[in-house]
Design a protein around this nucleic acid. Sequence first.
DNA 1: AAGTGGTCTAGACCACACA
DNA 2: GTGTGGTCTAGACCACTTG
Lengths: 245, 245
Amino acid sequence: MNTPPDAPAPTAPAPTSLKDRIRIDIEELIMSGEWQPGTRIPYEHELMLKYDCSRMTVNKALAFLVERGLLERRKRAGTFVAIPTVHKALIDFPDMRTEVTELGRHYDFDLIRRIEREATAADRSHLAIAAGPVLQLDCLHFADGTPYAYETRIINLALVEEARTARFDREPPGCWLFEHVRWSDARHRISAINADAAIGGLLAVRREQACLQIERWTWRDTGRITYVKQIHAGETYALRAEFRN
Amino acid sequence: MNTPPDAPAPTAPAPTSLKDRIRIDIEELIMSGEWQPGTRIPYEHELMLKYDCSRMTVNKALAFLVERGLLERRKRAGTFVAIPTVHKALIDFPDMRTEVTELGRHYDFDLIRRIEREATAADRSHLAIAAGPVLQLDCLHFADGTPYAYETRIINLALVEEARTARFDREPPGCWLFEHVRWSDARHRISAINADAAIGGLLAVRREQACLQIERWTWRDTGRITYVKQIHAGETYALRAEFRN
DNA sequence: AAGTGGTCTAGACCACACA
DNA sequence: GTGTGGTCTAGACCACTTG
């Protein structure tokens, strides 16, 4: 469906700290257009006087807005309203069990395949390794008994040895990894694909049905931990992302 | 294609401030698994002693990690390693011209339709208004002369009056809005659709081709500014998102 | 009741970029 | 040089929560 999302929750009136009041005041001056992109805003020293506070407090408010991308600071020159170039959005990829449960539906999954092997060419490419043992886990996620998503995953056993002995018949691999492995970075790729006969059969959709495909490569400092590809039937699934400055 | 992305750029060795050293130390203890999720970490006072610095400096480092979702703080109890529940990722939605140009390709666009009208039922739903004038702008974006994306947009003229007189024959609507309107919030919806005959014709793909559809609703405090739907031919397009905790 | 984090102060020194 | 922001200090009071 094509229903617009709810309006953003009004920002909590909250026990506003002075730092937040300064921050919000400036945000509003920028949003309203009163302070145009490129404008120099008052120096920290001037804001100290205006809000009758210490420089540290002003500094915290400004630092927050810099991290959000609303301001830019240049030494000796001052602080400027940033010129926007991109829409940034924050997107949540919960694990499947959490995602389905939060929809108020009953979650279940089938482990379709579990293969331990030496890395194939494709595995080596995804995990950026020259060789080594990997574990492939394919499973189908259900919501209220209906196929929800198909997932195929490769785990680098050299980095996650515990996966060798883990049982994935009760706990889905995504959950297990969440609890057992920390990652320092991840990259996602979101694309649209046409269901082939195999995917169509698994997800119970017609051939050619447009599906949303999410791929994720996960790193830890020491190397790549896992590669996962998730496929959702398009008509019933959509990702949601929130603005994030 | 299904090529894995490049490894994340190594974090700049940078002129590390003390605050950052503390932050990085703690990050590494968490990432390595030495401090498991749920663990209480040392009190601010203990960290002051360890790093021989003021409490403010420790506090800044911890506040940063809280905002990143790596730590949770409870008064009177202490600071704890957060238990992860979702993968968060940051995704950029540049405007089409920027996006295509950054790919090193030549950008061009055609304005297909420009309609000023009283809001229809669909417009009212997307903009959450009871009535009022809207502007619909449909256009086709090209990269190196090849169709890149189809875009249909509705602008709330009550909030963006300047759009009435703006010319959209040289500058694409997305760019124009970037420069003229600030938003305070936006919601995105990403889904997969099958090309119908009309979309297939515009994007030069076969019927049923899976396409990636991105919808965006944009707010300012005072109301909804615009709704836009962008459709990319699936095989040639993918969104990329970075981990962001 | 006690001790945590939340917030703030009124200074300070420094590096850097600009004039 | 000069003045900006970057960073840090050594305190302080308070609210909250939890033992």
